[in-house]
Simulated assay, not measured.
Amino acid sequence: MKIGIVLAQPPSYSETFFNSKIKGLLEHGYTVELYVREKSSGYKNCKVFTAPKVSKNRIIQLFKTVFVLLVLLFSLKRLLRFIRLEKSAGRLRAQIFKNVYTNSHLLRANIDWLHFGFTTMALQSEHVAKSIGAKMAVSCRGYDMDVYPLKTPNSYDLVWKNVDKVHTISKYMLAKANANGMLDATKTMIITPAINTARFEKDIEKQIDETKPIQITTIARLHWIKGLDYTLRALALLKSKDIKFKYQIIGTGTEYEALRFAIHELGLEDSVSFVGELSHHKTLQQLESTDLYIQYSQSEGFCNAVLEAQAMHCLCIVSDGGALPENVLDNETGWVVPKRDSKALAETIFRVLNRDALALKAIRTKARKRVLTDFTIKHQIQSFIDFYE
């Protein structure tokens, strides 16, 4: 079976969900091809096909368009079928012409499944799978379901009409897909993120040392949806109670300046540091020395970082945003706090730090065992095999 996965670009080292999926399917005898808009050098896990780029120079663009159309003449039946389907959906000629150009690499694909790694990636490509005689799948992730539909209501109507099967990464994402118009008859499957358990074989004994500052970590891009501003306010409340801590944020993003200003205003400059982007190996090293992991996002599709933090024996406190309550079980494997409530977060941290050491050890142990049992790459790959079969 041949599976074509559509992404903006080949997955980076940190995108473990896609990398483990591709590697696992290949190991089970499937052929996997990537179809991307931007090709990054060095990706060798499978064949990569790049969409034609649009040039600002009209003359150059004219030559590129002619070349693409000439190549598509070898797939004339597919091209005509695609144009017919686009017309039947009421698209204007200019948009159809543009879609032919941008989807030309997909229209030449010889595959059994065309799987869009994000639902937004399927927009303006809804008729490609039918045109090439393949089945169509989409994955529903955080931005797809939480943010994009707010900006463009009913944007997925054509996706839902043409998709054969929908993959979601959590129960929360499935509910959001339904709320965003997914048809009741659509076949769906929940396949959560997973971790490579071989990287977490070392069983670390942890205990909070009250003579030293508490080591707190968050792994997140610097973006409003990650709730870092609320986390900082909670930590300021802890500092006002003379609780000593060191908080590190692993990640980069557009909100760096705003967060730096907030740290200054809250008087946290000696307690908070930005680590920037780290390799996966170095990230795990940071988690090894972490006492408390916080993911106080306004919403998460699931969050791989929280899984890895639990596997590294970190005490995890998360918000109730999105699928985080599916990731961390409140008062069993960690703590779930209502989102956008810095006072509640601060009070939860304070309670955790004052819990009995044996009680905290039991929570760490249960969290680690659950992750290493229920969120394995092996289970994830078998789920994808079932999904395509």
Rank of each mutant, 00 (worst) to 15 (best):
E210R: 15
Q248A: 11
Y247S: 09
L222E: 04
S297C: 08
V306D: 06
E300G: 00
I208K: 06
S319R: 03
M312C: 13
E269Q: 12
L315H: 08
W224K: 13
Q295R: 07
S240V: 03
L232M: 08
T290L: 03
E210D: 11
K202I: 14
L292N: 07
S279A: 12
K212H: 10
A236M: 11
H223K: 05
I243E: 03
Q215H: 11
K239L: 08
L259K: 04
I204F: 11
I263R: 00
E255N: 13
A311E: 07
R221V: 10
L228S: 02
I219P: 02
V318L: 00
A323W: 04
S319I: 07
C303L: 01
Y247Q: 09
L287M: 15
D320Q: 09
Q248C: 00
E300P: 11
N196P: 02
I208W: 09
D291M: 01
A234Y: 02
T283R: 12
E205L: 11
L232G: 06
Y256D: 05
E210F: 07
S297E: 04
L232R: 02
L237F: 01
E277C: 03
D270H: 10
E205Q: 15
G253V: 00
L238C: 09
E277V: 11
Y293N: 09
Q248W: 02
L287I: 12
L268A: 01
H264Q: 12
A305S: 15
T217A: 09
T283H: 02
S271G: 03
F261G: 06
Y230D: 12
